[in-house]
Design a protein around this nucleic acid. Structure first.
Lengths: 218, 218, 218, 218
DNA sequence: TATGAATGAGGGTTCATTCAT
DNA sequence: AATGAATGAACCCTCATTCAT
């Protein structure tokens, strides 16, 4: 029998994966039951254990896909010479695009990883720090090039930049909002990028005169 | 003799509250066991139920304290005429000060509320949206005064601003970092404020010439 | 100070007793909480333990009052020469009268004792059997006097007689019905008495001719 | 080979059911622990929850079986033309036969349902009332046919009849007595039937002359 | 592969009872 | 006599995981 034909069967592992993402998105890791996932995948729940060692393994696989894509992006960029704002734009786009295509994946990242000390395995924490460092590398480069101000730690600017992205995604996740087309996506992306770059750009004049003035008059 | 002084009575409710914050900070809501909390508070198992209806009630009480302080701040500011940057500074400070004094409280907010669709009760979600709206109000005011650019939705600017704050706190929470003195706190606060205000301020010239230029040269 | 005057204080023990009857009537022994009883009695729940050793003791006291009255009645009758139907009437009346005055007492007897093998202490079981035997004594006397038929065991007739009484009380208990005045009480009593005595009376003719006839014609 | 024969498969649900009846018979609903039932059924704790939603569900299932049989009997009889005394006999027999085959089932009915206001769900109460009404219907028919006296409410006669049955069963339940063969069963049945029918039969002469006479001579 | 019955540790909650005041 | 905070054993239920088929 033709093997190629028989593999037309729907890849069970992918089905389970998808079901797991959906259920964990809805209920969160702790409240997601293996039986829920099985039901969603339309299989018996014993079968999950043929494809995944256990619940944690299933979770890790999901998270791995998220990190995998992100690290691939960062690695790609590291090898190329790209202007700062385009690099930042790519990072922003990764979040927004992934949210558009796989909202659940992003939701799980936001709810279970990005903020959870409790669930964070050393492994996950390591990924998280690594991503922060890679982004910080991009920022530092911008500082070296004189595009970004250097009187603030690169780490601080990194927080501000990534925080903005996360806030948009979080808001959408919490409100169960979809991204309405590419126009919205681009507006969001440019708002993050412009505000960040303008706000963090190298200042010719002393730090923030207007601000200080207002403060003194207030 | 002064009664207030002599009654160094333990106030068990506060002790339990504190223990609950600590344990939930360490383990997260789901993995925090009532018995852990009791042990931490150095009391018997059942006594918790004397002071709190159940685990959820205990959690809600914690969260309520967080929201309570935040809404009190927002209400205070609404009644006064304060320049924009000072209002924003106060919001930043609330997060940083609370983190300094009660890191656990902020941790729980970040890990269990701010990001969790799954655990979010309608009540909590409502609080969250309300806070977003109040902050958006401040931003809109800034736009009306011509301080902040109006070509981006107030909601977008709000996300960027709040996202920056959360990112700092999240980072510290994840790394289990303490705020090292007021100097660090002020540096963080001013970085958030400056970058945001400079980045979001009303632009005299077209949107972002430098950015466009760089892009074309890149 | 005059002791007689001070004893005008409401006898706490009686108050607790009354509250216990009420709560146990409503909820049953198992679901009745000591705190419920205390609240009903308007006292702190620790105080119950000054007057009663524990929950079982409280229950036993209630039951004791029921059996006490019943055995006193049976003892009274044993010393007197009274016609059968009057004796039976007195037993019926004890149940109905007590139900009229203290519905809860009878309810508890019915629900927690009369039918409960599980809750039955050896002590209670002993009381129960003793009462059955005493009633059986009355019935046997009736058989000896030739008033009641002797071809059925006295125990059987006893069951039928007491069963009838209990059924009426049970029905009222279940329906939470009050006895509407003495008229109703008397009608019930006479129905039980007449049906029982007519049905159980010494038969001149063979067992039950009418019955056999009807059966053959049916 | 006959499949029906070969599948001597255990039918765990039935085993659990039986174990539950046994334990609840011994200890009553409240004191019966799920772990007791599991041990009695020789299965693991959690398996009970595979077959029954929870403890109440297990209890309800037991009770349902009791009511189910009884209502089926009543429905059967309603469709046929059967003389009164045979109908009554069938009701009596249902109680006695069921007791003979499943003493536990009857015990639970007697101890937990028939008498318990506290544990009675609205559902159970409804069943109870319905059964009373159906029996009352049989009695009323007897009154209409002139077989039973009509000067007592049908409801009263119903109480007396059903009370007698219950008393026999109760006594056996309390004494943990088995029915010793069919002979005893028939004697009990006929004693209930005869006493009731003779006692409740239509009277040619005024209400109860003998009774009154005896009373006056006593 | 696939099923779902079977297991049992784990944890929230209740509530009778004790005891310091 | 009176209070009610404090204790902790008891018990129901959940659900990840295993395993016989």
């Amino acid at each position: 029998m033709n093997k190629a034909l028989s593999t037309a069967k729907p890849d069970k592992e992918a089905i389970i994966f998808k079901a797991a993402v959906k259920i964990m998105t809805q209920k969160g890791f702790h409240k997601a039951r293996m039986s829920d996932i099985a039901k969603e995948a339309n299989i018996s729940y014993g079968l999950i254990y043929h494809y995944f060692r256990n619940k944690d393994d299933l979770f890790d696989t999901i998270i791995h896909r998220w990190w995998g894509g992100l690290f691939r992006l960062m690695a790609d960029m590291a090898e190329q010479v790209i202007p700062l704002h385009l690099k930042l734009m790519r990072i922003i786009s990764y979040f927004l695009d992934t949210y558009q295509r796989h909202p659940g994946l992003v939701t799980i990242f936001i709810t279970e990883i990005s903020r959870s000390t409790a669930n964070l395995t050393t492994d996950q924490l390591h990924h998280f720090k690594k991503f922060m460092l890679l982004t910080e590398g991009v920022i530092k480069e911008g500082q070296k090039q004189g595009i970004l101000r250097s009187d603030f730690k690169a780490r601080y600017l990194t927080n501000i930049f990534l925080g903005a992205i996360e806030a948009f995604v979080s808001t959408m996740v919490l409100a169960d909002q979809k991204l309405k087309g590419n126009a919205q996506k681009e507006r969001i992306a440019s708002s993050i990028l412009e505000v960040f770059i303008n706000g963090a750009k190298h200042q010719v004049r002393p730090s923030n005169p207007a601000l200080t003035q207002e403060a003194s008059t207030g």
